[in-house]
Nucleic acid binder design. Structure first.
Length: 834
DNA sequence: GTTCTAGAAC
DNA sequence: GTTCTAGAAC
């Protein structure tokens, strides 16, 4: 609650905080009289906010002086909070002659990932030119802001913070649904990023060195702040202090709170139509439709939120007739791939109707329900029309408007199973149906899902029995969730089919077939053993892939593969097997590390089935580390293996990128990359780290000039889809920082060890300890970045020139590496010994 | 992951 | 003409 006097929204902000003095150049447009509401605005200040240095209202009113100082405005806010919109609005609206520059990290890299250093330099340059600067990056924590504050104080500029403190759900919704974002952050990844970033939020304080902090909680605040900076004359300075902090409540952060507040809002699908109040059911708060999100993102309008909030309370629950059929098993499913994945609605509706027709003809005691949250859902009406034209039995297949997680409690529709429009990692998040279902089902669904499969390929599905404790089971009577993944036609996502609807339609059809087949499988298993959860779990928790739905009964013995659907088995040709016979030498390239007794036929069959849709598999070369980890004994005579334990193998990298480069490989099956690691693996990571340190120490003792760094490649969750090459099996690089090796040949090699693509082992452990997963960068641009020296950061045109430079560069390493012992050198170890 | 090689850059 | 990169093939 706002305890201060009401802020007059209609009066000009400059007048509110800056009473003009005779020598002030008045902005071109007419300003209201100066004195009327100064107190009002300053009365908004929270004297406690920002620590003890928050100034009193009167002091604030008196601080205005003609200084001619430049201003550094540090925008603070997560993606989607409107920082860029703010900065652009100031640039466009400034009308007093004060020159402004926007320093934007998203664009400063000119297509490549921008850095803080680039921003600092640009800001310094602009300040030198006499411009005031808007720092357009997230600046969420003190450390991120500190350098800009320092820069400001160095040039004696006023440093302000404008904190775009909007509701988390708004930022997530906007960043998820925007397109064409300068930093390429949008779609499902954006929700994750916003959520993660907000965990790091540290509210700006005057004690950091700001002369002024302004909180913008909504559209009006933003507009006021923009107007104020637009009207800030060259010789004006704004009052010091904290303004606009209206609530002392905890800062809302994270998607969890988002869902607690609006647990059904994110189920909204892209319907292509605007929502009206009548489309909402009681209790649904903040229903942000995709369409509205886009509008909100595009115009930075907070009106959306208000409008949506206003919808609550006077909505009427839509009356729907649910065909009663207590003898049928019911599957409720959302439209797959049409929202985030932008699949054409016409085509999608044809596919849904075709697949459903086929299904209901085959199974007369099961029914399918297409569900969408919006009554005006276009996909729903298309399907409805097409199903009617095909004369499908409407008691077996029908559409339903409602929240898929509350069909029984709110809609009176009892469903045995619900389908989830999952992501390929089968993890919560994303802000849509997926997030809503994981949220509604409770944590049990995550655990149950993990037992069934780790990942999902486009066109396939996996059935997960809900634990008896799941609220979704207890409240809604849903016994199974079937995760299904369709094709992606969204160019802003990394695995886009680029308008290839031939392939897209096939995958979508496969996805529905797989979903329906899995549903049928549950029912069949339940006819005999309705109360045997274990049994049903075993039979139901299978992944049905696009082409194996027809052969699922034939390969039911193949339990291991269906349990871990993530990895198509290595693709080995018969020639490779022949050539490989009897050999177990270490060689990534021709894959001779794969044991010669590999069950080749089964693998080939498996690869055909699994590779049918996307052909995205671990190439044979990528299996090498896995083979070493699983069967180190086969390579015991190789001098490449340095150490073997139950937990790990230490291997000399066969293509070292530095004088000393070894890999500490985990031997845990299924731990393919950092994306698979969670808190349970912390002790393994610690073991890997300490073994890595031990080897680094050994090498340093042999050659005291060596300096080591320990870390993991950012094998992101998207790498599989992006086909970014990587070696399967989690491995820690222990690499000397000379990078003096013929094995280091190209930009990708260099950047994979010297950009943020390389994640320090210490950071990874800390991240996992704190967040349960590593913050993996998914930006493929990282590996294509310009070549810069890892020590002095100088740029070089090509690898030979870079190599020449690094052979003699003696600059100190970047500060972030010098901290926390991320670099291991002779001094590190001698210190340890003393 | 590497190797090979066409073609761009110098 | 030589060097180097980047994409295809493995």
């Amino acid at each position: 609650m706002n305890n201060g006097p009401d802020l007059s929204r209609h009066e000009h902000p400059l007048r509110l905080s800056v009473p003009p003095s005779p020598c002030v150049v008045r902005p071109a447009r007419e300003l209201p009289p100066p004195s009327s509401c100064t107190h009002k605005f300053l009365g908004e200040m929270d004297a406690d906010a920002g620590g003890s240095s928050a100034i009193t209202p009167d002091a604030g009113a008196e601080t205005r002086e003609v200084t001619g100082k430049n201003v550094v405005v540090i925008l603070v806010g997560p993606p989607g909070s409107g920082k860029s919109t703010f900065a652009e609005a100031v640039l466009a609206g400034a009308n007093t002659g004060r020159p402004w520059a926007r320093v934007c990290q998203d664009t400063i890299g000119k297509g490549k990932a921008g850095t803080k250093i680039q921003c600092l330099k640009a800001a310094a340059d602009a300040l030198k030119e006499g411009k005031s600067v808007l720092i357009d990056r997230c600046n969420l924590d003190r450390e991120q802001r500190a350098d800009f504050l320092k820069l400001g104080s160095t040039v004696q500029a006023d440093v302000h913070a404008v904190f775009l403190d909007l509701p988390t759900k708004v930022c997530i919704s906007r960043s998820v649904s925007r397109t064409g974002h300068e930093g390429n952050l949008q779609g499902g990844m954006a929700a994750m990023v916003v959520n993660r970033m907000l965990k790091k939020l540290e509210t700006p304080l005057l004690t950091e060195g700001f002369s002024r902090i302004m909180f913008c909680k909504d559209d009006d605040d933003i507009k006021q702040a923009v107007d104020m900076y637009c009207a800030l004359g060259p010789s004006h300075s704004l009052a010091s202090g904290v303004f606009g902090q209206k609530s002392k409540g905890p800062v809302q952060s994270g998607i969890t709170k988002f869902f607690k507040k609006a647990d059904t809002s994110s189920v909204e699908k892209s319907s292509g139509t605007k929502l009206t109040s009548s489309e909402r059911k009681p209790g649904q708060k903040n229903p942000l439709s995709k369409q509205e999100n886009l509008e909100a993102g595009g115009t930075c309008s907070m009106e959306v939120e208000k409008k949506l909030n206003n919808m609550n309370g006077n909505e009427e629950r839509s009356k729907q007739i649910v065909p009663a059929d207590i003898n049928s098993s019911t599957l409720a499913f959302p439209s797959i791939s049409t929202a985030d994945f932008q699949f054409d609605l016409e085509r999608a509706s044809d596919i849904i109707v075709d697949a459903a027709t086929e299904f209901v003809q085959k199974h007369d005691n099961m029914r399918l329900v297409l569900v969408d949250l919006s009554q005006k859902s276009r996909i729903l009406s298309l399907v409805k029309d097409k199903a009617a034209k095909k004369s499908i039995d409407s008691s077996r297949f029908f559409t339903f408007v409602g929240d898929i997680t509350q069909l029984h409690s709110k809609g009176g529709l009892q469903c045995n199973a619900i389908a989830n429009a999952a992501n390929w990692r089968l993890k919560p998040g994303g802000g849509g149906v997926n997030a809503a279902i994981f949220n509604a089902a409770g944590e049990g669904l995550q655990h149950a899902t993990k037992e069934c499969a780790d990942t999902l390929r486009p066109g396939s599905s996996v059935t997960v029995p809900l634990p008896s404790t799941s609220p979704l089971r207890q409240r809604e009577g849903v016994t199974h969730v079937i995760h299904v993944l369709g094709p992606n036609m969204n160019p802003m996502r990394p695995d886009c089919l680029k308008n290839d609807y031939t392939q897209g339609c096939k995958i979508l059809h496969d996805a529905y077939n797989s979903l329906f087949e899995n549903f049928a499988s549950i029912f069949q298993s339940y006819t005999g053993k309705q109360n045997d959860e274990t049994s049903s779990k075993k039979s139901a928790s299978r992944v049905i892939s696009p082409t194996d739905s027809k052969m699922k009964r034939e390969d039911s013995h193949d339990s291991e593969r269906t349990k871990k659907c993530k990895l198509p088995p290595p693709i080995l040709t018969s020639r490779q097997h022949q050539e490989r016979k009897g050999t177990s030498t270490l060689n990534y390239h021709d894959n001779t590390m794969v044991p010669s007794d590999a069950p080749s036929q089964a693998r080939e069959e498996g690869s055909k089935r699994n590779g049918a849709v996307t052909n995205k598999s671990w190439g044979s070369w990528a299996q090498a580390l896995y083979e070493v980890a699983m069967h180190p004994e086969k390579y015991k005579n190789s001098n490449s293996i340095l150490e073997v334990s139950d937990e790990l193998v230490v291997l000399k990298d066969l293509y070292p990128k530095a004088k000393k480069h070894v890999l500490v490989i985990s031997r845990t099956d299924g731990l393919d990359s950092l994306a698979d690691v969670n808190k349970e693996h912390l002790s393994l990571l610690r073991s890997m780290h300490s073994v890595g340190v031990k080897w680094a120490q050994k090498f340093v003792e042999e050659d005291a000039s060596l300096i080591f760094r320990l870390g993991y490649h950012s094998q992101s969750c998207l790498s599989w889809l992006l086909q970014v090459p990587s070696m399967r099996q989690l491995h820690l690089h222990v690499i000397s920082q000379d990078f003096n090796s013929p094995g280091l040949k190209n930009k990708k090699h260099w950047n994979s060890f010297t950009s943020v693509f390389f994640l320090d082992s210490l950071d990874v452990m800390e991240e996992i300890d704190q967040h349960g997963s590593a913050a993996i960068s998914s930006d493929e641009k990282l590996l294509a970045m310009e070549l810069r020296c890892h020590r002095c950061r100088s740029a070089h045109p090509n690898i030979p020139k870079l190599k020449s430079h690094i052979s003699s560069c003696k600059s100190s390493f970047p500060a972030h590496l010098l901290k926390k012992d991320k670099l291991l050198s002779a001094s590190t170890f001698s210190m340890d010994c003393t």
